[in-house]
Simulated assay, not measured.
Amino acid sequence: MAGRVRRKLGLQEAEALAARAAEPERCVLCGRPLGAKVEWHHLVPKSEGGRETAPVHPICHRTIHALVANGELARDFADVEMLRSRADMARFLRWIADKPPDFHAPTRRARAGEA
């Protein structure tokens, strides 16, 4: 028998695919409508055992990882509301609020001592 072997999807895998197939409407971080490109942020990083994902803009995703280390995300900021409450994240959210969905800008890591 030549060709690829296909396996049946488990219930959890099928549910995850169905959830992604339904177009998300808003970024879970900033709340703005999503644009043409959507990224899926692991609320608890995969390296820390996380599986649950949420739709975000690419710029929001880069900002999360530029400001917060994976260990800190897993330990203190798996809840999006807690992440939004950080001073540096709140400043970013105020700045991005009036930008169009597909807005792009360079993202830099916070320097030591910046909040």
Rank of each mutant, 00 (worst) to 15 (best):
A2Y: 10
A2L: 15
A2G: 15
G3S: 08
G3E: 09
R4K: 02
R4N: 03
R4G: 06
R6Q: 12
R6A: 13
R6E: 15
K8Q: 06
K8S: 12
K8I: 13
L9G: 05
L9W: 05
L9H: 08
E13C: 05
E15Q: 15
A16R: 13
L17W: 07
A18C: 06
A19L: 04
R20F: 04
A21W: 03
A22Y: 09
E23V: 15
E23C: 11
P24V: 13
P24L: 00
P24N: 03
C27G: 03
C27T: 04
C30Q: 00
G31R: 00
R32I: 11
G35Q: 06
K37R: 14
V38S: 01
V38N: 00
H42N: 09
L43Q: 10
L43V: 13
L43E: 04
L43W: 00
V44R: 07
V44P: 04
E48N: 05
G49D: 11
G50W: 01
G50I: 01
E52N: 10
E52T: 14
E52W: 07
T53A: 05
T53R: 15
A54F: 07
P55N: 05
V56C: 09
H57C: 08
P58Q: 01
I59M: 04
I59C: 09
H61S: 03
R62F: 04
R62A: 13
T63Q: 11
I64Y: 03
A66G: 03
A69W: 05
N70K: 12
N70P: 09
G71H: 08
E72I: 09
A74T: 12
D76I: 01
F77L: 05
A78C: 03
D79P: 07
V80G: 04
V80H: 08
V80Q: 04
L83Y: 07
S85Q: 13
S85K: 11
R86C: 11
M89Q: 06
A90N: 05
R91L: 04
F92K: 02
R94H: 10
R94M: 03
R94E: 14
W95Y: 13
P100W: 00
P100L: 01
P101R: 00
D102F: 08
D102M: 10
A105H: 05
R108W: 14
A110M: 15
A110Y: 14
R111A: 15
A112P: 10
G113R: 09
G113A: 01
E114M: 02
A115C: 05
A115Y: 02
